[in-house]
């Protein structure tokens, strides 16, 4: 087993332990995080450090930014997700956000661990500096929107309880609607530029690799649909005062589109963005 695979497995173990601790902490009927929540945070930080090492090891071994097959992409996605969550955690200190985000990272990693891990030669036409720039921007955008999705789910749960006046233990742990809504806005204002730059850098890269900026392949089409969706939400927020439930629902739909753009297109529809296309002759 090569070093990066071993590191990947240890990272997954760390993330799983952190997830379990987050979930254990969050079911208690308390306002604040307990010792388990704090332990979960540190284990997650440790896992993230290991994940950095995993990616570095794979980069050195493969000689390209490791986002060229499903295994690598999922691992990279999980890495950006955990990184972005930890950034949010510095600002909001919200164990409950971890309890919702970490399971997603673990699921991504679990699927990633079942995917073939073999490294192939990268198609020389794609070997360019635009490759890491494009994928990093795109995945950072994805990760930020994933947090928006998580906040959206939390908002809908909390709003449901406040409207129906039936409170479960989660009510006490979930933050206020105002905080959840501001996370939605913050994610949007960081995620949207990231996504936009991701699409533009992709177009520039496509031009240098294939000699054309835009080819309307399914990935590009779906990315554009998703982009319009988030653009509409941002516009609605800024002008008409969309917020709360509507913004939360938008963030959830946007995330589902994003997921389809990322996975569905690659797995169901074959095109230039499929992993096959990444391989050299």
């Amino acid at each position: 087993m090569s070093v990066n695979i071993l590191l990947f497995k240890i990272t997954l173990l760390f993330y799983s332990v952190a997830t379990v601790l987050y979930l254990v902490d969050v079911v208690r009927r308390k306002e604040k995080a307990g010792k388990t929540g704090k332990a979960a945070r540190w284990i997650l930080v440790g896992g993230f450090a290991l994940h950095c090492a995993t990616l570095l090891a794979r980069y050195l071994e493969a000689g390209y930014t490791p986002v060229a097959n499903l295994h690598e992409s999922l691992s990279f996605f999980a890495w950006t997700l955990v990184g972005i969550f930890l950034l949010f955690d510095i600002r909001y200190r919200m164990t409950v956000l971890g309890a919702f985000s970490c399971p997603l990272a673990v699921i991504l990693m679990l699927i990633g661990s079942t995917a073939p891990t073999a490294m192939k030669e990268l198609n020389p036409a794609l070997d360019s500096w635009w490759f890491p720039v494009h994928v990093t921007l795109a995945f950072l955008g994805n990760a930020v929107f994933t947090v928006a999705f998580v906040a959206g789910v939390m908002y809908l749960l909390q709003e449901r309880m406040l409207k129906s006046k039936k409170f479960s233990a989660l009510y006490y742990r979930l933050p206020s609607l105002d905080v959840l809504d501001s996370i939605n806005y913050k994610c949007l204002s960081f995620g949207f530029p990231l996504m936009t730059m991701g699409i533009i850098s992709g177009a520039v890269w496509a031009n240098s690799a294939w000699g054309g900026y835009w080819r309307w392949d399914p990935k590009e089409t779906w990315a554009l649909i998703t982009w319009f969706l988030y653009a509409a939400l941002l516009h609605g927020r800024l002008t008409v005062g969309w917020r709360g439930r509507r913004a939360a629902i938008f963030a959830i739909i946007g995330f589902l589109c994003l997921l389809f753009t990322f996975l569905g297109v690659n797995l169901l529809l074959s095109d230039l963005h499929s992993f096959k296309a990444m391989e050299g002759p």
Partner: peptide, 24 residues
């Protein structure tokens, strides 16, 4: 224990609910 957490008067309960809506 959580013996003293959460309001047991109507007016304090209103304040706690407001906090869950508005944050601060």
């Amino acid at each position: 224990t959580d013996i003293a957490s959460n309001a047991v008067s109507v007016s304090f309960a209103a304040v706690e609910l407001a906090r869950k809506i508005f944050g601060s």
